[in-house]
Design a protein around this nucleic acid. Structure first.
Lengths: 206, 206
DNA sequence: AGAATTTAATGCGAAACGGTACAAAATATG
DNA sequence: CATATTTTGTACCGTTTCGCATTAAATTCT
């Protein structure tokens, strides 16, 4: 049902790949400082094609955010594989985040949402909505795992799954900011390790 | 030594007040989206005056960041008053942060540095430097208090002051991001309370 | 083959951008 | 009072910005 022959001239580009290139531009420069020329050059699409395929700059940006969000949720779900101990789950969440944030050892781009959507969130309601929803969904997914941890006895009955989840996310938010501030991989990994220890400190060791 | 009579026409504005107004513009819009017209309107200074007093837009932005940074360090020092218990200190750090981030209940601006400097940090080295230094100095100041806590027996000997400090900062970074994402005061205060509990959980109650 | 439809490429155009030249105004100095 | 010096306000310059109008190309439908 994807290759119904459409009636006009066929597209000469892969929209998904173009979206990925655009995402890199926004990731490096942010929304406001990314010009249509930058985006056009990176995607190899001239402006009318960009406009036709994705709408205006804000639409394109929101599309990249939504894609990033969904990728992130998938990565998170994998990291939280419930057949593993809670401690491993959280460690995997941070490792997955750092793999994205550090982007090939050198240039530290941090998190696309935290790093670039935060600025726009105050003035652009739609951006704020995506950012807020992303953070909340992330919290909720971790909270589910925390609840499971209480049920299983990995965490004490007295543990507050919602708050533990929000604090687990908080460590990740900090990693995102610090990556963009230029912190080294070693520093970030050390923070991640300590975060796991603090969050899962009350978790049973098998 | 401040009112040495200078030779030309005297300034008709207070540079410090103007810097405060400019800061508000950057806080709401970020660096890239803040136009000189915005800044000129907010400060009641025409562009040549702005330029003469502060340099170009990037210079002005860096000035506001540096001012914000120093204000933040002062607020932090007050919050960490060593005559108070550690737990109170950390709670005061978060309360002080939220007072700034929430800005009069309604509009949530978050942290100027985390919210607006993070985006520019990748491309602007001077911004990245200020951001990195700010985060590190903050960590270091909290770390000092943690060390004192260990000496005093507020924290166990096994505690790692550096890592505890970085995680205490992490909670604050998360508050900054979440404020900008639109989270309510109640949510943020709950996270702050849980953060205090988690960080200072091992601290003695007097 | 020809009409209809969709995409591609060129290029434009109005507005906004950052920054500055220039002259008038206001003060200190001699 | 004249001169030097600094700030102020107007107006402007060249560039870049985003978005679109227009025309050419590629494909399907009839």
């Amino acid at each position: 049902m994807k290759d119904e022959k459409k009636r006009g001239r066929p597209r000469a580009f892969d929209a998904k790949a173009a979206l990925g290139k655009a995402r890199d531009v926004f990731w490096d420069r942010g929304f406001a400082a990314a010009s249509l020329d930058n985006l056009s050059a990176a995607t190899n699409l001239n402006r009318p094609s960009l406009y036709g395929a994705f709408g205006d700059k804000e639409d394109l940006y929101l599309d990249t955010l939504e894609g990033y969000r969904q990728d992130g949720m998938n990565t998170l779900a994998e990291a939280l594989d419930p057949s593993l101990p809670l401690r491993d789950n959280i460690a995997r969440v941070y490792a997955g985040a750092l793999a994205i944030y550090l982007h090939g050892e050198t240039a530290a781009r941090g998190c696309l949402l935290i790093g670039t959507a935060s600025v726009e969130a105050v003035q652009h309601e739609r951006v704020r909505e995506v950012l807020g929803r992303s953070l909340n969904d992330f919290d909720d997914e971790i909270e589910k795992r925390m609840r499971l941890g209480v049920e299983r006895g990995e965490l004490p009955e007295s543990a507050d799954p919602q708050m533990l989840a929000r604090l687990a996310s908080a460590v990740m938010h900090s990693l995102a900011v610090r990556a963009r501030a230029g912190d080294s991989r070693e520093t970030l990994e050390a923070i991640a390790r300590s975060g796991v220890e603090l969050i899962c400190g009350s978790a049973n060791n098998p």
